[in-house]
Design a protein around this nucleic acid. Structure first.
Lengths: 342, 342
DNA sequence: TAGGCTCATGAAATCGATTTCAAAGGAGGC
DNA sequence: GCCTCCTTTGAAATCGATTTCATGAGCCTA
């Protein structure tokens, strides 16, 4: 007796359809997406037979023969992070429209897991890969095999593939300038791990402006690193900064999670902006109303995803030019549209 | 001249490996996950040859022959929604550990797109499907073909498959009771579209308690429907409620997006909780600090995902028993762990 | 040493769709 | 009416891994 499995699928093949329609398997194949034309009434007969039998072409057989695939591997650190989530959504939208499916791969910034997934991608084999590379990412497998790769958010090791990134350094600098323009003068920075390109770039932009304004190196005590993903880390770092004998009067938070934590800490101290200045890089903090005095920069998240997907599709289609690197601008005003993280 | 495509992969096959190792293709196949044992030194020779040639087995060929697959289709309304995002993450974790990959499918509650994806899943064919079914979901394709399906968050049309849901009605009732216990007496409800099972169930729990306390049907003017996914809709609905001649003194928001919007509206009116009571169902609203007086219920999101994944794996392994329905409890206290939406 | 057994091994068929190649059919020109 | 040319069609090979079946090697026992 069977319960859930109504009919343990004895696959309907093109041979079945061919027999029923009174044509050859080759003709059936041609009706379903073949290049060669088929006479109208024959095609109709095939369609009818296929419909009656509930025929669905087997993609594995198709892929084996054509050694092509309609799967794109999306390899990101953590899909449970709004940034990568939106990125993935954007990629999926473009992919679906082009007839591709998206395979989801969470790497958790773990090189071993990344390699494991690259192996899966190679043996699949997938049509292409969109990846946020980590510090030690080795794309060798994919490249020697000729599988197109586009990197997002960070550059690949030796810039060997296409990449879509944002202008972290310049926009971090611009946001930092705003703090000075608003009258703050003792600036601190809470950024991410030094293994991550974006956290270094944002710190770099911050430091450059501090240097040019003060004429000196930023005070090391005012530069903290925290995990990128936890509000709590930002809160702890901010509390530490404000407990200094000579605390900062403004904080540059290298992403909105850190900014949220910072706001929590400032709220606890009764020093919400504009009492203390704040930059929330990459989207607003998760607060009911962003207090005045907070400088927010907005990442073009959705654009990154769609751009990367389009670039990958071009490569899949055979585009053979040197690696491209697209840098998208970071907005200082709310784009009030698709790019919002919330 | 080639740029990105270093070696347009002329696939390395088991025949190449066999020749190099001086054995038959069958032996190579057996070394890579075959059942039959292979002599140790032969196996070593094959491993060596495979490593030298950079051999990776072709999954399409494997799947074609075995008509199996290691792909799970995850079909959710919108991955850019924290609930489904976390759900997907949990599924991916379990799937990966079991050697499966996850194919991502956003249905956007669109029956046409859902059908399209079910077709893809059928022609893949995938090993199993985890889906949040919509109002008119037709799982016929998958079922007649014997592809295991597990529904999450909502039940399938005639309960024909396994399902993992939460106890919406009962926990909505419990949360509503809390409002009365806190002294509120004029309760309103903002819920989702009537096409979605959970929004009706939550409204149902709410209404039951109102009925039992007041002895009368809830006032229709105090029950509003809004899109589930937009803060703005919740804000508009809350504003509308508060503008009534006889406004409610507490609002039951059927999810945290709606609760966030409600808080925005209440803040604008200077009536933040506890001035007006609030239930935020399914996680805290996205606010810096949840004001006192807000009743929050927490969905066991991660548990839903892992439970569903395990159930699916059981079905894939051949478990043949009647459809199961697992109802997970909704917590009234912050589980402070993996289940957080953030 | 011979007989009987187990077990590793290879040859070949197989999964289902695509595609090459050659043949059949049809249209058009003279 | 016949020949040429172009188009549609089918037979059969193919993609790469798995698996059945039969063979041969090795081992133990009598």
């Amino acid at each position: 007796m069977h319960f859930l499995t109504y009919g343990k699928g004895q696959m309907v093949t093109i041979y079945d359809v061919a027999k029923r329609a009174g044509v050859s398997p080759a003709t059936v194949s041609r009706v379903f997406g073949g290049q060669t034309p088929v006479t109208a009434n024959r095609a109709a007969a095939v369609q009818a037979a296929a419909a009656e039998l509930g025929f669905v072409p087997n993609r594995n057989a198709r892929r084996l023969r054509t050694s092509s695939s309609e799967i794109i591997a999306m390899m990101v650190p953590d899909i449970a992070n709004p940034f990568y989530m939106l990125l993935t959504r954007a990629v999926e939208d473009v992919a679906r429209a082009a007839g591709y499916s998206v395979m989801l791969c969470n790497t958790d910034e773990d090189p071993a897991r990344e390699q494991e997934y690259l192996r899966v991608a190679a043996s699949e084999p997938v049509a292409g890969i969109i990846i946020t590379p980590g510090a030690g990412t080795d794309l060798g497998w994919a490249l020697t095999r000729g599988v197109p790769v586009v990197c997002v958010d960070r550059h690949p090791p030796r810039r060997v593939t296409d990449a879509v990134v944002v202008d972290n350094t310049e926009s971090a600098a611009a946001a930092t300038r705003r703090l000075y323009e608003a009258g703050y003068h003792q600036l601190a920075c809470i950024t991410g791990p030094d293994t991550i390109e974006t956290s270094n770039a944002r710190l770099g932009g911050f430091a450059t402006v501090v240097r040019s304004v003060t004429g000196a190196e930023p005070d090391p005590a005012l530069i903290l690193r925290a995990r990128y993903v936890l509000d709590a880390d930002g809160e702890r770092a901010a509390a530490q900064l404000m407990a200094l004998p000579d605390p900062p009067d403004a904080i540059f938070a290298a992403n909105n999670r850190l900014a949220t934590g910072t706001l929590r800490a400032l709220h606890r101290l009764g020093l919400l902006p504009p009492a203390v200045g704040l930059v929330s890089f990459g989207g607003p903090p998760s607060v009911l109303f962003t207090p005045p005095g907070v400088v927010v920069t907005y990442l073009p998240t959705r654009d990154i995803g769609t751009t990367a997907a389009h670039m990958l599709l071009e490569r899949i289609a055979g585009l053979d030019i040197p690696p491209r690197s697209v840098t998208l601008p970071v907005a200082m005003e709310d784009p009030a549209g698709d790019n919002q993280q919330w």
